[in-house]
Write a protein that binds this DNA or RNA. Structure first.
Length: 275
DNA sequence: TTTTATGTTTCTGG
DNA sequence: GCCAGAAACATAAA
């Protein structure tokens, strides 16, 4: 579900609720979510007594900064965090539950159980997976025109696949790639190494702008996304093509169409985005 | 009832 | 190295 703007919104809302709380205990109802350490009992043991010092974000990953460790959480398609009183009943899709010393609970809910969690000793998280292969965030000064142009230049892959590739740039997913390519006027099937520098500059600029606007709007809610306060995003009102199949293009009036690109549903305006 | 699609990522076979 | 397809799962819509 969540791409960079949704994860950023979760980060901000969640931080208000759990900052400076101390973990008393942890329950894990679906162990497959825990990827590191291998042993779930060790996962729990590492967290006991740790306080949440900060929550940061890298690409689509949330980073719970603890006293001695970093808990890296990826929401994949349906992951959500919510804060409860211990007395509230635990839902069917709650798979990890953190109890705080003040009696409140942080619950990780994930209908499809695709989410992941890793724990690293603070300072070691960037040199191993899942964070070590990530490209720059779009907001990172390292995400320059020259950087992106060089990456595009050396691959025959279609541009949509490259933008979805988190080792190139971290944070774009299916919605924002479609929106970025529409705004840049580039067809998703175009080979990356065929793009002119001007087109690459447009893609870069629109990627950054689109994500910035989406963060301001609290993300995009198409079907199930809500932040940690249970609030929906508002950016769906600003979408040009994603989910707009058969609707008139907001720029030219022609019908938006949906195709399959790299196995993903892909929305374009065929007259604004020529192949 | 059955099939298809879903905001993600990773693995396998060709 | 790249692509297609499947897999990890559950659910709502067609």
């Amino acid at each position: 579900m969540p791409e960079l703007p949704e994860v950023e919104t979760v980060r901000k809302t969640l931080k208000q609720f759990v900052l400076n709380k101390t973990i008393d205990d942890v329950k894990v109802y679906w162990p497959n979510i825990i990827k590191k350490p291998d042993d779930v009992e060790e996962f729990k043991q590492l967290l006991r007594g740790q306080s949440i010092v900060d929550i940061s974000r890298r690409g689509k990953f949330l980073l719970f900064q603890l006293d001695d460790y970093v808990l890296i959480s990826h929401l994949r398609m349906e992951g959500k965090y919510s804060v409860h009183q211990a007395i509230e009943s635990v839902k069917k899709h709650t798979h990890v539950l953190f109890t705080f010393t003040d009696g409140k609970e942080l619950r990780y809910n994930d209908v499809r159980k695709f989410g992941t969690m890793h724990i690293y000793v603070k300072g070691e998280e960037m040199s191993d997976k899942p964070l070590n292969q990530l490209g720059p965030d779009p907001f990172d000064p390292a995400f320059t025109l020259e950087y992106l142009y060089q990456k595009f230049k050396k691959t025959e892959r279609i541009v949509k696949s490259v933008l979805l590739d988190q080792t190139i740039v971290a944070g774009l997913g299916n919605i924002y790639v479609d929106e970025t390519l529409f705004r840049a006027g580039v067809h998703p099937l175009k080979k990356s190494n065929k793009l002119t520098k001007k087109e690459v500059q447009k893609i870069r600029k629109q990627a950054i702008l689109t994500l910035e606007e989406a963060v301001e709007q609290g993300g995009t809610t198409i079907r199930s996304y809500v932040n940690s306060q249970g609030e929906m995003g508002m950016f769906q009102q600003e979408l040009f093509v994603y989910g707009q199949e058969n609707e008139p293009c907001k720029k030219c009036g022609n019908a938006v169409i949906k195709l399959k690109v790299g196995g993903r549903g892909t929305h374009i305006c065929p007259s604004c985005q020529k192949e």
